[in-house]
Amino acid sequence: MSLGLGMPFARVGRSALTLASVVLGVMTVTLATGLTMSVTAYNDAVRPGWSHPDRVEVMAGPPFGAPAMGIPGEEPPSPRLSDAGDEAMLRSLPGTSAVMAVARLETEVAGGTQKATVVFYRGDVTALGPRVLSGRWPDGPGQVAVPSRFLNQRGLALGDTVSVAARGTRTQLRIVGVVLTNNADQVFASWSTADSLAPGARADSYQVRMAPGTDRAAYTAAIGSGDPGLRVLPPRDGTSSTAVILVSAAVVLTLVLGAVAALGVFNTVVLNARERRRDLGMLKSIGMTPRQVTVLLVTSMGALGVLGGLLGVPVGIAVHQLVVPAMARAGQADAVDILMNVYHPPALALLALSGVVIAVLGAVVPARGAARQSIATVLHNE
Rank of each mutant, 00 (worst) to 15 (best):
M1N: 08
G4F: 06
P8F: 03
F9T: 13
R14C: 02
V23Y: 00
G25D: 04
T30D: 07
T30W: 05
A32K: 02
Y42V: 10
V46T: 13
V56I: 15
V58T: 05
A60M: 02
G61H: 05
G61Q: 10
G61E: 09
P62K: 13
A66Y: 09
M69Y: 05
M69D: 13
P76M: 04
P77I: 06
R80C: 08
D83Q: 05
E87D: 09
R91W: 10
S92K: 09
P94A: 12
T96Y: 07
S97Q: 15
V99N: 09
V102C: 07
A103D: 09
G112D: 03
T113E: 13
Q114P: 00
A116K: 13
G123W: 10
V125H: 07
V125T: 14
L128T: 05
G135H: 09
P138C: 06
G140F: 11
V144K: 06
V144P: 14
V146K: 05
P147W: 08
F150W: 06
N152E: 12
N152T: 12
R154E: 00
L158R: 04
V162W: 03
S163L: 08
S163W: 05
A166D: 02
R167E: 06
T169K: 15
R170C: 01
L173D: 06
A201Q: 14
A201H: 09
R202L: 11
Y219G: 00
A221G: 09
L230Q: 03
D237H: 06
T242W: 13
V244P: 01
L253A: 15
L255V: 14
V256H: 01
A261N: 00
L263Q: 12
T268S: 08
V269C: 11
R276L: 01
R276M: 02
M288W: 13
T289V: 09
P290L: 05
L296R: 03
V298R: 10
S300Y: 00
L304E: 03
G305L: 00
L310F: 15
A318Y: 03
A318V: 11
V319K: 08
V319T: 13
A330E: 11
I338L: 15
I338E: 10
V342R: 12
V342W: 14
A352N: 08
S354Q: 08
S354F: 08
V357I: 11
A359P: 06
A367K: 07
G369R: 15
Q373G: 06
A376L: 14
T377Y: 06
H380A: 13
